[in-house]
């Protein structure tokens, strides 16, 4: 049973910021629907009164001491930046252009 249409797949790809080719979208439409079919089994379980589990170990919220600890040196961070200038990472234009 197809759950996701081709336009759904395109929409999810946009949400995920993945630039996919037409061939990739075609393949994903089939594969994702096949995987989603496996999820149907979960509908058999009544979970209305079951609390969700996000973490398995029961730790109290742990806060570290409120002291200043050194961060990475700027030079070390910039070493990996595709573009940088004057100690800052150069980011492509976010606003404008149209």
């Amino acid at each position: 049973m197809a759950i996701l249409s081709r336009s759904d797949v395109e929409h999810v790809a946009h949400l995920a910021r993945l630039g996919l080719t037409a061939a990739e979208l075609d393949r994903l439409e089939g594969q994702l629907n096949h995987i989603l079919d496996q999820y149907a089994i979960l509908a058999r379980l009544d979970t209305e009164h079951i609390p969700p589990t996000a973490q398995t170990i029961e730790l109290e919220s742990i806060l570290r001491d409120d002291v200043v600890i050194p961060s990475l040196p700027v030079e070390a961070v910039l070493l990996n930046a595709p573009a940088h200038e004057g100690g800052f990472i150069v980011v492509p234009p976010v606003l404008g252009g149209e």
Binding site: V9, V12, A13, A16, R17, L18, G19, L20, T21, E24, L28, Q31, L32, I35, V91, P92, P93, V94, G97
Partner: peptide, 25 residues
């Protein structure tokens, strides 16, 4: 291009098929 075009190209070409499938899921 702008930041969105760069995202699409970088992630579309940088990730392999299984990673893209999982991100989509």
């Amino acid at each position: 291009g702008d930041v969105l075009a760069n995202y699409l190209a970088t992630r579309g070409q940088g990730f392999g098929p299984e990673v893209k499938r999982r991100i989509m899921l």
